[in-house]
Design a protein around this nucleic acid. Structure first.
Lengths: 107, 107
DNA sequence: TATGAATACCTTGTATCGCAAGGTACCCGA
DNA sequence: TCGGGTACCTTGCGATACAAGGTATTCATA
């Protein structure tokens, strides 16, 4: 069905923003992110998330630290860097702009 | 700069929705769409728009009719089909959902 | 000790899509 | 008749989401 595809497209571009919003509140590791985005009705796959986190890390917007887990292997907790906070502030502005655009087109 | 890229990504998925929103109000031809989206702060290139319109046409969400122009060659005016209106209603819902998701993540 | 399940990290291949650049066709005035 | 403006479309490229598959660590249990 076409609508599913378009809907998926709409969410696509928002992923990076949503992940950074999440990390602004607290450091998270991958499964944290998947679960918490899911609770907010945003689906993200493992194969999507890991490359995305690596890219944000490479661009200096995220850092990480290893933390031991009580169960299973250690976890990579990602955190926003100062550059990340700055980029996120710009994305906040972009989000406002998109909301305004849609609002105009709906009126 | 990375933020520009991400910002572009955010707009990407919204394009199809914005174009359909525009066509809900009135039939438009390509340059109409480019100009009116631009007025609403949404940039779209020719090379993006034409394939997108063709795809929506192929999927039965848009139709078109040729209209003579007072200046230059005739224009292809696109209109929403009944299926298009239905799909657009679903996209309205998706848009609401995305807004809610971001709202949750910002809180 | 061995082994299997659970958890966590990551990579590869494919499909989709926006964008830059280039191409064709039509109209009209000089 | 020819050049500029307008309009439609295609091709090649890069970015990215997703599905599928792979590796490593931990722990309970046989």
């Amino acid at each position: 069905m076409n609508t599913d595809n378009t809907k998926s497209q709409m969410r696509k571009g928002m992923l990076e923003y949503c992940i950074m919003l999440l990390l602004r509140r607290q450091p998270c590791y991958a499964n944290d992110i998947i679960q918490k985005l899911h609770e907010a009705d945003m689906i993200v796959m493992e194969g999507t998330l890991y490359p995305l986190l690596s890219r944000l890390k490479r661009d200096g917007l995220l850092g990480y630290e290893w933390r031991e887990s009580t169960q299973g292997p250690p976890r990579k907790y990602y955190v926003l860097t100062p550059d990340g906070h700055e980029a996120l502030a710009q994305l906040d502005a972009s989000w406002e702009e998109i909301q305004r655009t849609v609002s105009i087109l709906k009126s």
